[in-house]
Amino acid sequence: MFSVKNLDKTYPTGQHALKGCSLDIDNPQIVAIFGPSGAGKSTLIRCINRLVEPSSGEVFLDDLELTGLKGKDLHNARRQMGMIFQEYNLIERLTVMENVLSGRLGYVGFFNAMFRRFPQDAVDEAFSLLERVGLKGYHNQRADALSGGQRQRVGIVRALIQHPKILLVDEPTSGLDPKTAMIIMQLIKDLAIEKGIPAIINIHDVKLGQDYADRIIGMADGVIVFDGPPSKVTAETLTMIYGEEDWSKTIRKVEDEEE
């Protein structure tokens, strides 16, 4: 249902961020991407929905090849991929409802967007999704009045209201406290399962990733160095991804389970 083939990205600065990455996702699963800062996780995710232009390679969403798309075709393709951001990236000065409905921008005309006239079914869906993530009654609050966890819930709803075929999630928990981080990860996982869509999640919290993902991809220096289930992640794998360190504490839980 989704695949990336030989994706390569060199920035104008000369930085070679992606070196021929390939991956296939055949069923709705939660894929966590591990890797140190600068490994290319963020670039990979942004090359998929073309917020960053890949230098070469192919991306397939169902049978649609994305890297050659332009203009309206590109916008229509992007609207099938929901994205959730590290810094939430909500429109700070607008209300929660406007932020949620902005997920439908790809579906409405310019003037309707300008005067905030969104179809009633979108509004209904927005209300029910807000209730689903525990933000009932918050629709007229301004985004800058919310806490980090609440903002990320709005971010999740904004992505889901696009009716995406896949979720691209970039470090969703890095600004959150450990408990809120777990709640957000659980929410993303539950909603992805509910909607029957896969999610690709960049995350540098190894334990959190192992707890919630069905599959782990490890990246180092622009190359995919590991691809397998969380149970296969060992100290050697982490050393391969992050470099030499005492990993015994981080992965004890997995080893315990295996025993």
């Binding site: 929905n49 406007e98 790809g106």
Partner: peptide, 21 residues
């Protein structure tokens, strides 16, 4: 803040709509 622009681009909005939101 460029992040907000990026988020709007990611929804599939075209240039004009990215601008107003």
């Amino acid at each position: 803040d460029h992040g907000q622009v990026e988020a709007m681009r990611a929804t599939g909005a075209n240039g004009a709509k990215v601008f107003i939101f």
